[in-house]
Amino acid sequence: MADGLLFGPFRDRWAHLCIDMQRMFADETEWHTPWMARVLPNVVSLVELDPARTVFTRFITPMSADDVSGTWHRYYQRWASMTRERMHPDLVDLVPELRRFAPPAWIEDKVVMSAWKGTLHSRLRAAGVTTLIVTGAETEVCVLGSVMEAIDLGYRIILVSDAVCSGADSTHDAMLGIYNSRYGMQVEVVTTAELLAARLDGMF
């Protein structure tokens, strides 16, 4: 058994939730996430396990700061270069290494940090999914927002530590420590190698 998989097999009731692996974070923008290139091969290897079980989320920014309210308005005033009236439309798309998998993978667009404000939960429940393998960007932002709501919804979370990334080393490392120390009953932290070994062992 992989060291991080504490609660046994999850067989065929899983999906791979890949958060915001988009060109807006991979390319040289104000939101550039340098680690994305480093973790991308691991993400690809996990998608390849079964592309049809993969859900790619995309973070869709507003056309302008005037299209959102509250603190989001202030946020997009600060990051005006990342609004859709200012950035190239292709930057919203997945990185090419992942875009080729959809379909059969499906794309779930979102306008906030969490992946759960649209149809994701109902679609996964209809498919009998109870376990989520989680990868993507950023560890302490949209990955965190999506994981926390998934915990509230009762999903078993398998977080792949070397397939998530951030633009800030210190908060990435701190967040992985928090997952291990405070969410041990809900979040199992594994490496890509451990998860692939578990696949070979017939755990899923």
Rank of each mutant, 00 (worst) to 15 (best):
W35N: 14
M113Q: 08
M113D: 11
G154T: 07
R58H: 06
G118R: 04
W106E: 08
S170D: 15
T131A: 01
A26T: 03
M185V: 01
E138I: 01
R84D: 02
V92E: 13
H16R: 06
G154N: 12
W116N: 00
M87V: 00
D67T: 03
D173K: 15
R58L: 11
D12R: 15
T130W: 12
S166T: 08
A150E: 07
R100F: 00
T192K: 07
V112Y: 10
T130G: 07
A193I: 13
S114R: 00
L176T: 10
K117N: 11
T29K: 03
V147S: 07
I19R: 06
A126W: 11
Y155W: 12
L6R: 14
P62W: 02
P104K: 05
D201Q: 13
Q186E: 15
G184F: 05
F59A: 10
P96C: 10
L91E: 07
G8S: 10
A105W: 01
D152L: 01
H32E: 07
M21Y: 10
W14M: 09
C165V: 14
I158V: 15
M113F: 09
E97R: 05
L153Y: 15
A102E: 00
S45E: 12
W79N: 15
R11M: 09
L6G: 09
L195W: 14
L40V: 05
Y76E: 03
F10C: 03
Q77F: 10
E48R: 12
T135C: 12
D27Y: 13
S69A: 12
W35R: 14
L144K: 08
L159D: 13
G4K: 08
V92Y: 14
A80C: 03
P51G: 07
H172M: 10
T33R: 07
L159K: 03
F25N: 04
G128Q: 11
E48L: 11
S69D: 09
P9S: 07
G184A: 06
S146M: 05
V111F: 13
S181N: 11
D162Q: 10
S114M: 02
R23M: 04
S81K: 09
D201Y: 13
A150T: 01
V44N: 00
D12C: 06
S146Q: 07
F7W: 14
H88L: 11
T192Y: 09
A65S: 04
H73T: 12
M1V: 00
P51K: 09
R74D: 15
L17G: 03
D27M: 08
R84L: 01
R86F: 13
M148G: 00
E194C: 11
V189C: 10
T71I: 12
T71A: 06
R84K: 01
L196F: 13
L6K: 14
E28L: 10
W106Q: 06
L49I: 15
V92L: 14
T83D: 08
P104D: 04
M21K: 01
D162M: 11
A105R: 02
T61S: 03
V143I: 02
V111M: 06
V134Q: 01
G8N: 09
F7L: 02
G4E: 14
A80P: 00
L195P: 07
R86A: 12
S146A: 05
A37F: 08
L91T: 00
L98A: 11
G167S: 14
